[in-house]
Design a protein around this nucleic acid. Structure first.
Length: 225
DNA sequence: ACCCAGGGTCATA
DNA sequence: TATGACCATGGG
């Protein structure tokens, strides 16, 4: 597949978004009752099916543990037992506590809401257990910042479309997508949800398809690449 | 039985 | 920079 020129390669992200919206209904992410629940879910869902995360979050709620100060002060074993269904429970218990300690220390949302996106991202990445994607999930869905989240689905779908290689560094891809789209939080939030939906149900790991289900994007590439 | 899931860290080269 | 091991449950 030939590389797209700058002039021709500037709008495939917007075009793919329209196709995704045609093919799937509005996703309206992130499913949660509060900002803090989004943050907890972002950590618990690392390499884990969301159905398992729901069980863990329900356990935390049922035990009145879904508060940053509570988790920060709780015993490791208590958290681990409650989040067991989400897998990696020893690792995630530690990560959850580290995040909550930071969150409480910084004054939680009422104070953090005034931080710049760049500063928040830098701080989040610095927390043990919070990587690029988890940080951007939190920025996008908990802090409502216009951030394009890159995940394994994004790499799979768009590498099969031939517009990226798929192994590029995280921030390189994030900036690439952001540069092609209006800088709107609602757009980025819906886009990532659609990518996940498409990756789960259409563009699977061992696919029968070659174009990932977004055929018109492939036509676009064949025509202009 | 095998593969996958809404990743990240650490050691190693 | 770039692989590989490791973490662990639950559904298809």
């Amino acid at each position: 597949m030939r590389k797209l020129s700058k002039r021709q390669g500037g709008k495939w992200a917007a075009k793919a978004y329209k196709k995704l919206l045609q093919q799937h209904c509005h996703q309206d992410w992130w499913p949660a009752d509060s900002r803090f629940e989004v943050m907890v879910g972002a950590i618990l869902t690392q390499n884990t099916a969301w159905t398992n995360v729901e069980k863990a979050i329900n356990n935390l709620k049922a035990s009145n543990y879904l508060f940053a100060d509570v988790i920060a002060d709780a015993k490791h074993e208590s958290i681990a037992e409650l989040i067991r269904p989400s897998g990696y429970f020893n690792v995630k218990s530690n990560r959850l506590k580290k995040f909550c300690e930071w969150y409480v220390e910084k004054g939680e949302y009422p104070r953090l809401r005034y931080w710049s996106t760049a500063k928040l991202r830098q701080e989040l990445i610095g927390i043990y257990g919070v990587g690029h994607e988890t940080a951007d999930d939190i920025l996008l869905y908990a802090f409502n910042r216009p951030v394009f989240v890159i995940d394994s689905y994004t790499r799979r779908i768009f590498s099969r479309l031939g517009v990226i290689v798929g192994t590029e560094p995280y921030d390189e891809l994030r900036v690439l997508f952001e540069s092609q789209l209006p800088n709107k939080q609602k757009l980025f939030g819906e886009y990532h949800a659609l990518v996940v939906r498409h990756g789960k149900h259409v563009c699977k790991p061992k696919p029968n398809c070659k174009n990932c289900g977004l055929d018109s994007i492939c036509k676009f590439n064949d025509k202009h690449a």
